[in-house]
């Protein structure tokens, strides 16, 4: 094994001392799930519990990350820890991929399997009037086997999703420019391109909100629009949420950059956020092809 980086007071592997953050964060989440579970069942106090829990949780995370940043900037993190962060971020992103896989799997199953099956000859016994053509709103199709779903139009790739694709792809480029600038220790250039990236993310989200309004108001396409609506909104919705989180990550990284954090050698925080952003990007490409085009 190579040299142990032990110079300048950096421990071989920094192990933090006792911390109240984990328990506090868990407490916050306790109020979150308690409140959420009650709220969706109509208990008004649930909303307060949910809000209080979120506040505790977010405040704790803020302090927790604050500690980590101080440790990092204080030179406690050896290269070995840097490697740990890399592994952990990679596997975290992998777990996110699997989460999306569940919903893509649902879409696959519905399109390839259950909807055609509900319309086949055997199933005319149960759903005599159902014409199964995906998306279930196409010409000649009925929106749902039981006729419980109002007619709706599907969301095509043009224009908003295509614009959004362009936005996200561009943001990938701007992020890379920022990264190269950081590697060259050109701080103000880095910060400039980071702001552009964050902005692209915000615009993406704005367009998505607009798209949803369009779906509800003009297309009559809702979360309740049968399996099409379910998969459409859950996939794009969870993706949008991830864009939001990724955008926040980039935002905080940018703020840290303005405070003078990170340098060309030591900036895993930056890279982690960038990986996440690229992951969100790739998921979008999947959505764009599978949900909007196919």
């Amino acid at each position: 094994m190579s040299a142990v980086s032990n110079h300048g007071g950096t421990p071989y592997y920094f192990v933090p001392g006792p911390s109240r953050h984990p328990a506090m964060a868990a407490l916050g989440l306790f109020f979150v799930i308690l409140g959420a579970g009650q709220w969706i069942n109509g208990a008004g106090w649930g909303a307060y519990s949910l809000a209080a829990g979120m506040i505790i949780w977010l405040a704790t995370l803020y302090q927790w990350f604050g500690d980590a940043i101080r440790e990092s900037e204080g030179g406690q993190y050896s290269d070995r820890i840097d490697v740990s962060f890399r592994w952990s971020m990679s596997w975290f992103i992998f777990s996110e991929v699997m989460f999306f896989a569940a919903f893509f799997g649902a879409l696959y199953w519905a399109r390839v399997h259950s909807v055609p099956m509900l319309g086949n000859i055997d199933h005319q016994l149960l759903w005599p009037d159902f014409k199964a053509i995906w998306p279930s709103a196409a010409a000649g199709a009925t929106a749902s086997p039981a006729g419980t779903v109002d007619a709706f139009s599907t969301m095509g790739p043009w224009p908003i999703p295509t614009i959004n694709t362009a936005l996200l792809l561009t943001s990938g480029v701007t992020l890379t420019i920022a990264h190269h600038a950081l590697l060259a220790d050109k701080r103000s250039k880095t910060i400039f391109w980071m702001w552009i990236t964050v902005l692209l993310g915000v615009v993406f989200l704005g367009f998505q909100v607009y798209e949803y309004m369009h779906a509800y108001n003009d297309l009559n396409l809702k979360l309740t629009s049968g399996i099409y609506g379910s998969t459409f909104f859950m996939l794009t919705g969870f993706h949008g949420f991830h864009v939001f989180v990724g955008m926040l990550m980039l935002l905080f990284i940018t703020l840290r950059l303005t405070k003078g954090h990170f340098n060309s050698k030591h900036h895993f925080g930056f890279e982690g956020a960038a990986w996440y952003w690229h992951f969100v990007d790739v998921v979008w490409l999947g959505l764009y092809l599978i949900v909007y085009w196919m």
Partner: peptide
């Protein structure tokens, strides 16, 4: 993912597991 779909089917009107809306 699976239990999230259960949750939205229960409360938010999705149809993942409801054949009447094309689910399974």
């Amino acid at each position: 993912g699976a239990i999230t779909m259960t949750l939205t089917d229960r409360h938010f009107g999705t149809n993942f597991f409801n054949p009447a809306g094309g689910g399974d």
